[in-house]
Each structure stands twice: as C-alpha cells, then as structure tokens.
C-alpha cells in the first residue's frame, strides 16, 4: 500500500482529481502546490489518503462559503502544511532514526 495506490487506485483517485478540478481556480492552485510539497516531504500519513481527501473537503466548504483560499488558510501556506503534518513522521525521519539506531548499536 503506497501513494501509488491512491494514484493508481484509479477510480478513487480520478474521483479525487475531479473534486479538485471542481474547486475555484485559486483553490486549485493552492491544492496542487500543497500536494507537490507533501510528496517531497513525504509524511507517513499521506499513504492512508485521508489527509488529501480531508483537505479537499475543507476547501469545498471554504469555497461554498465564498471565501478566497488564502483567506481560509492564511498567506503562509507552508506553515499551514507543516501544521497539517505536525504529528506525522516523514520517510526522511524514518531513515534518520534507522541510521541513528544502527550507529548507536555499532558504538556499543
């Protein structure tokens, strides 16, 4: 199970993309940039898929209320993203921990 399943689990992913495309243009732009950032940072939680679908739901509510996207999440989009994944370890963290564990073991 990976992000691939979200992307390749085609029907679900296509439905997700369709929902993104139905958002106002400013929301679409911000959504795409957020997704790109999250793919790079690699939070472990991303693979269960609820992070992105929950975000779209939240954006749909904001758009329906007639708000602009930055009015909804603030101008520091990166700070919003980091709050979004605050409790989540990233794959980079996982790697770091394994390195530290191994070097710790080697020293003993």
């Amino acid at each position: 199970m990976g992000i691939q399943d979200i992307i390749e689990g085609k029907r679900q992913w296509r439905a997700h993309v369709a929902r993104v495309k139905a958002l106002p243009p400013d929301y679409q732009i911000v959504y795409q940039e957020i997704q790109r950032y999250l793919f790079k940072v690699g939070p472990v939680d991303l693979v269960d898929g609820t992070l992105l679908s929950g975000l779209v739901e939240f954006f749909e509510e904001g758009a329906a209320a007639g708000k602009g996207v930055l009015q909804l999440i603030g101008t520091d989009v990166a700070a919003f993203c980091d709050d979004l994944i605050k409790d989540s370890r990233t794959y980079a963290d996982v790697y770091q921990e394994s390195v530290e564990r191994n070097s710790g073991a080697a020293e003993k």
Binding site: F80, D83, L84
Partner: peptide, 18 residues
C-alpha cells in the same frame, strides 16, 4: 485576529486523530 480557519482545521484534525 490572526487565527484563520486553516489553523483551526489543522488543530481539529489532530484532535480527531488523537
């Protein structure tokens, strides 16, 4: 005044997850 809905959203997400 600076608190936006997005901030509250991330907090609610964490409360739900926890």
């Amino acid at each position: 005044a600076d608190v936006v809905e997005g901030t509250v959203y991330t907090i609610l997400l964490r409360l739900e997850r926890n």
